[in-house]
Design a protein around this nucleic acid. Structure first.
Length: 330
DNA sequence: TCAGCAAGCCGCCAAT
DNA sequence: ATATTGGCGGCTTGCT
């Protein structure tokens, strides 16, 4: 049984964001060992040629009726952010949500979700360029322009453009586990996982000498993740003083060095929880925590549940019904 | 649960 | 003069 993904597009659609969805969910993935995969339907209010940004047209294959049958509905962009969203689209989204579908927006797609009222009182992400407009139009939505995406369980919203990849991979991770998501990421040739709370802003987008040394030290840390690493040693590997490393790290990663490392350790433990029978104690040690208690603590901080709880979620193979594991509520 | 110790983090400032 | 660095001290956090 395929999991149906309906993508809602409009005249003036954004081909890049649409392409992300197709790439992650819409292609056959014979190399992945999964009980089920996704089936994408590109939907629009009316089936007619739609202009895409960049000077070409796309003809959607489906009308809005597909939205009603979808397990997941994705709105990759909304080209006219300040104009009202077509009532039929709003109705279709509301109906899908009531029927239990997971709603996802990328970039300005958040305007469409907000128009349904379902975002009221919830935290939501969008492209930083649209944040103030979204806030102005829908004051009840708690817009957070600083994060890559927000997983609020049944509704996910995400930042702009390339950041659309992150929630999509996150969904794959929730549905199929970290191992599968990592495989897919490798196929797409992108970083395996960026957490939702990672910042949208990278202060130094240009790869300069600092970034190079930082990256080098991070690579080193990741390949020695099982060993105890102190800030001093970390800094040494980056050819900086601890003080400077902390500073550079804050600018580039928006997170202190050791905090980042702890998160990497939790990430590294996920495949072990899923695919091994190692005890929590052993897994903790395998990814560099000195004690299982510390591991549990960091785990809960980032994933809002215990390692054992996480393992049980993915234990039963094909545990498909699970929707929206909330890793970022509150 | 608590005390005490070690480490990380970050504002501040002096030195380069 | 301005920017970057890195050391100091105080506060917080985690571990025993």
């Amino acid at each position: 049984v395929a999991h149906k993904v309906a993508v809602v597009v409009f005249d003036g659609l954004a081909p890049f964001e649409l392409g992300i969805v197709i790439e992650v969910f819409g292609l056959p993935r014979d190399d992945l060992v999964v009980p089920w995969w996704y089936e994408v339907a590109v939907c629009a209010e009316r089936i007619r040629p739609l202009a895409a940004v960049g000077g070409f047209t796309i003809v959607p294959a489906h009308g809005l009726s597909e939205v009603a049958h979808a397990d997941t509905v994705i709105v990759p962009a909304w080209p006219r952010s300040l104009e009202p969203v077509p009532p039929k689209v709003v109705a279709a989204l509301r109906a899908a949500h009531t029927a239990g579908a997971r709603l996802v927006s990328i970039c300005s797609g958040a305007f469409v979700l907000a128009a349904t009222g379902l975002l009221d009182g919830r935290r939501a992400a969008t492209h930083w360029r649209y944040a103030s407009a979204l806030r102005g139009l829908y004051p009840a939505v708690r817009v957070d322009e600083k994060v890559l995406y927000v997983d609020d369980g049944d509704i996910l919203t995400s930042a702009g453009s390339a950041a659309g990849l992150d929630p999509c991979l996150h969904i794959v991770r929730c549905d199929h586990g970290a191992e599968v998501a990592n495989h897919l990421a490798r196929r797409l040739v992108i970083a395996p996982h960026r957490a939702g709370d990672q910042a949208q802003f990278i202060e130094r987008p240009v790869v300069d000498a600092h970034d190079q040394r930082l990256r080098q030290a991070m690579d080193w840390a990741l390949s020695h993740i099982a060993e105890p690493i102190t800030l001093t040693e970390f800094a040494h590997r980056a050819f900086m003083s601890p003080r400077t490393l902390t500073r550079r790290f804050g600018e580039a990663v928006r997170e202190p060095p050791i905090a980042w490392l702890m998160r990497q350790r939790v990430d590294a433990s996920l495949p072990l929880l899923e695919n091994s029978d190692l005890g929590i104690e052993q897994i903790a040690r395998a990814v560099g925590f000195s004690t299982a208690a510390g591991y549990r603590k960091y785990f809960r901080r980032h994933l809002s549940r215990s390692p054992t709880g996480y393992r049980q979620t993915y234990r039963a193979p094909g545990a498909a019904g699970l929707r929206g594991i909330s890793i970022m509520t509150g």
